[in-house]
Simulated assay, not measured.
Amino acid sequence: LVDQPLMRNVLADLAVEAEAATLAALRLAGAVDRATRGDAEEEQLRRLGLAVTKYWVCKRAPAHAAEALECLGGNGYVEDSGLPRLYRESPLPSIWEGSGNVAALDVLRAMARQPQAVEAFFAEVELGAGADRRLDAAVAGLRKDLAGLGDPDAAAYGARRLVERLALVLQGSLLVRHGNPAVADAFCASRLDGDRGLAFGTLPAGVDTAAIIARSGPDAVSAA
């Protein structure tokens, strides 16, 4: 199946999602370590970046697990594969550790009470400035919309949408700086430029699926 064009689209899309989430997790783990040692700037990034990323990864995980299970068919459905357990447990972080609404409103709270956290967040994101026009446009649009936030009820109503955009620009910036070029390009095209559908496996034409899939294949895992 891996040689079929549509399956390659699905696998590449899943790999892009996983790499973006992993990079964000590693960057924030570093921020937590440095904040613990007294780095004030990293503490501000940790405050906002962690809440933003928690919301988005928790929302994406169940769909990601379901699509991965589907790729393996019956072999993925049986308990021996391990995927059913991952699928069952994937919703738990946003149930036990705070719902999506709680996480999104926590971001708004942090932005209102700690403006320096917003500055630290954009300082991190803008380290990727100039690397990809789609990222630059997404960051500029986000800054403009943040400047226009006014009515608290309206801000709360759109909190999930706002936090999603914050998460995507953070992941995009990390990918263009530290990720594989093929993965970064696919991410910016699909997540930031909007050239994709609503399900996994809807990456646009021109994405280097072969390079993306190769990074997640058995040979790459063994080498790592």
Rank of each mutant, 00 (worst) to 15 (best):
V118E: 05
A140L: 12
S222L: 13
G158T: 11
G30I: 02
A21C: 06
L108D: 02
D39M: 04
F122M: 00
A51Q: 10
E164S: 08
R191K: 13
Q4S: 07
V221P: 00
P152H: 13
L23Q: 10
L1R: 15
Q116Y: 07
T202R: 11
K54C: 03
F122L: 01
D208G: 07
G217T: 06
E67K: 13
K54M: 06
T202Y: 09
A123H: 12
L174I: 06
A21S: 10
A12C: 05
Q116S: 14
L48N: 06
G194Q: 06
I213S: 00
H178S: 03
A159N: 04
K144Y: 05
V207F: 10
D145W: 13
E126K: 14
S216L: 05
L166K: 05
R143P: 01
G73S: 12
R161G: 09
R113T: 09
L198Q: 11
G128F: 09
V139K: 04
V10K: 05
P204S: 11
S173R: 04
G206C: 01
D106V: 04
Y87M: 03
G128V: 10
V107H: 09
R160E: 12
G74A: 11
A15T: 15
Y87G: 00
A68L: 14
L108M: 08
L14T: 01
L168D: 07
G217R: 13
